[in-house]
Amino acid sequence: LVRYRTISKIPQITLNFVDLKGDPFLASPTSDREIIAPKIKERTHNVTEKVTQVLSLGADVLPEYKLQAPRIHRWTILHYSPFKAVWDWLILLLVIYTAVFTPYSAAFLLKETEEGPPATECGYACQPLAVVDLIVDIMFIVDILINFRTTYVNANEEVVSHPGRIAVHYFKGWFLIDMVAAIPFDLLIFGSGSEELIGLLKTARLLRLVRVARKLDRYSEYGAAVLFLLMCTFALIAHWLACIWYAIGNMEQPHMDSRIGWLHNLGDQIGKPYNSSGLGGPSIKDKYVTALYFTFSSLTSVGFGNVSPNTNSEKIFSICVMLIGSLMYASIFGNVSAIIQRLYSGTARYHTQMLRVREFIRFHQIPNPLRQRLEEYFQHAWSYTNGIDMNAVLKGFPECLQADICLHLNRSLLQHCKPFRGATKGCLRALAMKFKTTHAPPGDTLVHAGDLLTALYFISRGSIEILRGDVVVAILGKNDIFGEPLNLYARPGKSNGDVRALTYCDLHKIHR
């Protein structure tokens, strides 16, 4: 019993810090008490220290592992850092350059016999395009090294910054494609005289377009951006097909006994025919423009016929181009109408809503002055909100995010209106959640004399007048207030005048 009563005193000691020596009952000389009392004092002292730490809000209350900052290894790049964003855009520009100039170089340097010394005699450094290609190869190699040090988000939505895990993730992902696209074939085969082989191998750079397509997928929600990307894709495919079309004609031209190829026909049409040795002929500019003209006309199913396939190889390629053109029509131009419709969806919704308003007016036989006010209010409210119901949009977000959005939407009023000066951010967040926005066209009466005042109004834009009878008592403008002081009276009061809008007004109100 003594032991039980001794232990039962522990909660009292913990909360009230009572010393055991003052209790005459606990001072009985028993061996059990002498053993338990020192333990009680020690526990009391420890609990006292913990309570003191909690009340003082000291940093040592938290466990040590929670006080440590997340460790980022040296030379690790955050995937959302500004440097990584700028670097990704730079790589994107280099990939676009590669997609345009690599097929052009591979096709127009394929057994090209233009006048001038061969590239091997001039030297590697004197070729501007080769120098640019070398810079692109170096940048792609540097990009691989950067990807080995860039964080990523795993399946659990955690940012991984450990170098080993980053390397394994990159090896399992895009490393092989990036490595093949970054191989400097110019340096590996330079001086061997195989410019045709170098041009063909350099087309491996186009593998990076797969990554670019995935990154550009984030802009699919913007109709104008999608339309622009589709047109660029169409032009890029036409450019690639033009390079292939020229390569076919250029390879067949020296081996044909009869002059029936499209390059021969082009030379005869523009007065620059090929001679018996295969030299001469149109310039590279004429060849490229004509090839691009043929691919565009074939892809769009126009086909004027002034550039036509004559050999079997050219006919087979033309059939493939027609098939590609039909697929592009289905996948690209078939979506253009939907994209344009999405661009004008706001206008369509406006006309639909206006039609419903006019049908309501016609069905209920609203008189002319009231009908005009109804239409003007709808037009003004639509121009202010673009038909978007803010309350319906915010309803799907958590309250903390709703408060931040409301604070942002009402920031101008909260910053410049005098009653809100000096208020804490928590108070402003709470008030912003209570605001209701209303609009009024010129001549609209917001409050009639004798109406119950259940709200306090803040003028965000425009001006109003307060009338008693036919006498203008006051004219209020931006950041002015009218209405009933909230919670100042037990019952809502009545208006002693009319409140009429002089201009288009936007008002925020808080109800009782």
Rank of each mutant, 00 (worst) to 15 (best):
A403N: 04
E112I: 07
G396K: 03
T424A: 10
V447E: 03
L92V: 05
P82H: 07
T438D: 08
T120Q: 07
G396F: 03
S277P: 01
K202G: 01
G249C: 01
R429T: 03
R259C: 05
A392W: 04
V142C: 08
P369T: 04
T437P: 12
I96M: 03
V100N: 01
P117S: 08
M256Q: 15
M433G: 04
Y97E: 01
V100S: 01
K434W: 01
Y329V: 09
E64W: 11
Y288V: 01
V289G: 01
G334Y: 03
L209G: 05
D133L: 01
N335S: 03
I72N: 03
C417L: 14
L343A: 12
H380A: 14
V86W: 06
M251I: 08
W382N: 08
I340E: 01
D133A: 01
Q379T: 07
A238T: 04
Y222S: 05
I284P: 01
E121N: 09
I189H: 13
D88H: 01
G443S: 03
S283D: 10
V86A: 07
L446H: 01
D88T: 01
Y65V: 08
N386R: 12
A119F: 05
H79T: 01
G280A: 03
Y288D: 01
A99P: 01
R165I: 04
I339Q: 04
Q365I: 01
C400Q: 01
V86T: 03
L299E: 01
L92K: 03
L355H: 09
A430L: 12
I260F: 12
M322Y: 01
T437C: 07
S276Q: 11
T150H: 01
G303S: 01
R218W: 05
K66H: 05
G271C: 01
A348N: 03
N306C: 03
H79I: 01
H380W: 15
W75H: 04
L176M: 13
F101S: 04
W174G: 04
S313Q: 04
P282N: 01
I166M: 13
A204R: 14
Q269H: 01
G123H: 05
P441H: 09
L327R: 02
R362N: 07
T76P: 01
G280R: 03
F228D: 01
G281R: 01
S313M: 14
L78S: 07
S194L: 14
L209D: 01
P118E: 03
E375D: 04
V393M: 04
N335F: 04
P118F: 04
L394V: 04
K285G: 04
P82S: 07
N335E: 07
V336H: 02
L279V: 09
I135T: 04
L236P: 01
E112S: 11
N306W: 01
K285P: 01
D88K: 01
L93I: 12
A225S: 06
S331Y: 09
D186A: 14
T295K: 01
N265W: 01
H239N: 01
Y384H: 14
C400L: 07
Y97A: 01
P128N: 03
G173S: 13
A291M: 01
W382V: 03
P82F: 05
E376C: 11
L431N: 01
W245P: 01
T150Q: 01
S308V: 04
I244E: 01
E252F: 01
A242G: 01
G271H: 05
F83D: 03
S298D: 01
F294C: 01
V168Q: 10
T102N: 01
F420I: 03
T424R: 08
T424V: 03
E375H: 14
K66P: 04
L370A: 01
V210C: 09
R211Y: 01
L227V: 11
G303F: 01
A69T: 09
A204T: 05
D404P: 02
L207K: 01
N306A: 03
D133V: 01
I388M: 08
C427G: 03
H79D: 01
Q415Y: 11
V447I: 11
W245F: 01
Q341A: 14
A381H: 15
D286Y: 01
E64N: 13
F190G: 14
E376V: 07
N312C: 01
F234C: 04
L90W: 05
E252S: 01
F83P: 05
A225V: 09
Y384L: 10
L292N: 01
Y344N: 08
W382L: 04
A330I: 03
Q353D: 15
M251W: 13
T352E: 12
R165Y: 07
L90S: 04
G346D: 10
L323W: 11
I284Y: 01
R356Q: 03
Y222G: 05
A106H: 01
I388E: 07
S194K: 15
V307E: 01
F304S: 06
A167Q: 01
Y384W: 08
F304G: 01
G422D: 15
W75D: 01
A181D: 01
V86G: 05
F101L: 15
T233N: 01
F333Q: 05
D143W: 01
L187C: 08
L446K: 01
L207P: 12
Y288N: 01
A242W: 01
D257Q: 06
M231T: 04
Q415T: 08
T300F: 04
R358C: 03
M251N: 08
W240A: 01
V210L: 04
S326A: 07
I183K: 01
T150R: 01
A432Q: 01
F108M: 08
F420N: 01
K436A: 09
Y274Q: 01
Y104D: 01
F228V: 11
L323S: 03
F363L: 11
Y377N: 13
V159F: 05
L370H: 01
T445L: 12
G199Y: 03
I177P: 08
M256R: 12
S81I: 01
S161N: 07
L67N: 07
V168T: 09
T437H: 11
I166K: 01
A69Q: 05
M328C: 13
T311H: 01
V302S: 04
T437D: 07
M256C: 08
N335Q: 15
L266G: 01
M322L: 03
F190R: 14
L176I: 14
T203F: 04
E196N: 15
H351G: 03
T437S: 08
N250P: 01
P441Y: 04
M256F: 09
S301T: 15
G164R: 14
E196Y: 11
L134I: 08
L327P: 11
C406R: 08
R205G: 01
K272A: 01
Q365S: 09
Y384R: 11
A155C: 15
A247V: 14
L428C: 08
E114A: 15
E158G: 13
A130S: 03
G267N: 01
G199L: 04
A238V: 03
L207Y: 09
H364G: 03
P282G: 01
R74K: 07
T352M: 11
T120K: 12
V86D: 01
W382F: 04
T150N: 01
L90N: 01
L428D: 01
I141W: 14
T300Y: 05
S308L: 01
V159W: 03
S337C: 04
C126N: 01
G325V: 01
S345L: 08
G193L: 05
R342W: 09
S313K: 02
A330G: 03
I248V: 01
V180L: 13
H169K: 09
H439G: 05
E121M: 06
V393G: 02
R421I: 06
Q127F: 11
K418S: 09
E64T: 04
W262N: 01
A449V: 13
M179R: 01
V160W: 01
Y377P: 01
P117L: 12
R429E: 01
C243V: 01
E112G: 08
A99K: 01
S331I: 07
P254C: 15
I237Y: 01
K202F: 01
I189M: 12
L197F: 05
E195K: 08
W75F: 10
R429C: 06
S192Y: 07
